[in-house]
Design a protein around this nucleic acid. Sequence first.
RNA 1: GCGGGAGUGGUGGAAUGGCAGACACGCUUGGCUUAGGACCAAGUGGGGUGACCCGUGCAGGUUCAAGUCCUGUCUCCCGCACCA
Length: 824
Amino acid sequence: MQEKYIPQVVEAKWQQRWETEKSFKADEASEKKKFYLLEMFPYPSGKIHMGHVRNYSIGDVVARFKRMRGFNVLHPMGWDAFGMPAENAAIQNNCHPAAWTYENMAYMRGQLKRMGFSYDWDRELATCDVEYYRWEQQIFLQMYERGLAYKKTSFVNWCPTCETVLANEQVEDGGCWRCDSDVKQKELDQWFFRITDYAEELLDWTNHLPGWPERVMTMQRNWIGKSFGCEITFPLEGEEEGITVFTTRQDTLYGATFMSLAPEHPLAERITTPERREAVTAFVEKIARTDRVRRTAEEFEKEGVWTGAFCTNPLTGCRMPVYLANFVLMEYGTGAVMAVPAHDQRDFEFAGKYDIPIRVVIQPDGEILDPTTMTEAFTEVGTMVNSDRFNGMRSDAAKESLADHLAGEGVGKKTVNFRLRDWGISRQRYWGNPIPIIYCDICGAVPVPLADLPVTLPRDVTFTGEGGSPLAQLDSFVTVPCPVCGLSSRRETDTMDTFVQSSWYFLRYCCPDFTDGPLDKKRTGYWMSVDQYIGGIEHAVLHLLYARFFTKVLRDLGYVTVDEPFLNLLTQGMVIKDGAKMSKSKGNVVDPNGLVERYGADTARLFSLFAAPPEKDLDWSDQGVEGSYRFINRVWKLVFETLPFTTKAPALDPEKLTAEGKGLRRLLHKTIRRVTDDVEGRFHFNTAIAAIMEMVNGLNAFEAKNDPRNGAVLREAMSSLVIMLAPFIPHAAEELWEGLGETVSLSQVSWPSWDAEVAADEELTVVVQVNGKLRDRITVSATATEEEIRSMALAAERVLALLEGKSVRKVIVVPGKLVNIVVG
RNA sequence: GCGGGAGUGGUGGAAUGGCAGACACGCUUGGCUUAGGACCAAGUGGGGUGACCCGUGCAGGUUCAAGUCCUGUCUCCCGCACCA
């Protein structure tokens, strides 16, 4: 090794060594226990950013650590390569999305290699490769066969900027998750995945994933939104069919005085009377023009229009006018709400505005509500009144009886409702996986036969940037014979949401070269589930919910045997600079390239691991980076300068240690224990690194370096130090390891173990408190009994002074830690 | 409104109910240097400046002992939200 640390030289050397020796290749034929470690794969946007550096540095520590702990580690990397930016770039720069994407992947692959992450590059995949997406088409067809993929006409979220449909999960605050444009509602014929079939199971399992952060589970539970209630049918005057509502408050049914329908409700048109038609049509049109963001804001004024129709309260026989109301959502429940003004705030406001009667059916404790003087709805639990046989019951307890009663009368039933909607996967874009369906005038929608797969995404398209998907303009793609009858038919030109590809890529990593189907059951069975998944919190209900769903579907299709894809999930925080997330618009971006050129990859890695625990946001600090760089230099210098003592050292004989040597060895074994616990148990790399820094400080302060009797213990310390640094700064560690005279790459070396006896102190400092306040310290032998410690504490000089004239009431002894003397 | 998380030095952050502030950044002083940088050494929560007091958003409580547990409260962040 060189005297001076030159990261660029060292890093290039070891990256090349790892590559030629295929040091991180994962093989299923191993005696070791498997460990599947995965970080969320990147979108090839052009170049990696600090978020990637952080995410992948965290992952690489775990990968390298687990290997050193004797696991057979699968640590793959690939590209989430379909998606809109490629298409936008094509329109702007007149280059093909494929060219743009593959160039970006090549560049970013180089950047990731330059960071020294220990991936098995032989398993690299890109979702835009036909060898990937062809299998997804097969999965789609199998889902279609089972009714899990289907097409329906509905109102969907439409982003006018991206000119495509978005899934509910991809609408954030009424805006597009990518470009933030206001999302409009548009009625379209679209493909869906029946994720609602799995709602119950997806929800159940949120209680059986202890390795997931609670808040992600909570977000998923909220998203699935299960609620218990009743479906109740209200007969419509002059119609065969009634109106069915979903309610969680069947206990307020006796107080229902009107009915509200969503403006888009299919019955709305039919039941409107001629004299109300004009008003109703005007209202419906007004709502259609109002964007969803505004309409769903809570402060938005409650408005409606009477249809002229009436329905009947099935229990009271009360005649209820049927309104259309702007706050009723077609996509939740049945799109119809029984309105109980006395006990629902929205209905209360609505009733006030349109002069509809208020009927109190639940009275609060110690108060009598009067409909004529109420200022707001009473929504809590109380005693039921005006409710026939249920009078006098507690409203919450009555829910069950009411449900039974409704079922008995044949007007309702108990039911559960989910907020979760089916996953809309159609995208009116080019750069995605074509949906393998053909439309024939005679045979209807016909799946592309398996033998005809893949439906290859054609290259020769033109990008105008307007007028929808370029695929639809390409006659050679669109026009095909119907697989059933042979007549000229049209291909589906929608492509799949890119979240479909990321819903199963982790399975394909297990067998990326498999050619007989989407997945090799044997290899997938060996590696799955992912033992540790690491990525950003922003995918809490997007990718992470879809991937769980897909895993269950693939299980039911017989491809995998696991119920859940990710056993443990680590959600890392954002990288912040100057109080804000790094972004071009804020001008606070730190480019990894510059960092690596100046300090090397090891420094970039070390800083992003040391500055904060992984799950917290990381505050970027240029000075902190300097500090990390200085630390590596200090270690380098320490190892280099002690080489004369360590390289010629004899084998360690624990019996023949000097006092200093023994102390140093104790420090080492304590450090090994701390670092192992911090890395293994809780991924607290910042404290693990701090422990190593403390040891380095201890080694620098070690005076007796040149005492030949300490050579062996010094060598043990240096070796272990370098091994422990390997997961964090692998290049520098390898070079130092070689400098110590070792010939086997650190990637093959085991993590050091610690000996509790060696780590144990011979003497301990015990804190002495009087009435809970620190007053003195005593030094006791590690073998001292509680009684001995107690009497020493009571005899301590400063304690004696404080005990003067007072009586000792109680003495608490915490062995090895503290004595608290209670006096009074 | 509901749910989740967090409030600790000048800064990032440490602390199985047991010495608050590990480790690092920054800063101060000194050394080295023509100088700067780098490096090395010492110091660094506040106040008194003796060996004492105060201090983990705020107010209570439990305990021999509370940053940590409990109750209330404030602030900030995140998610969901006219969800029937």
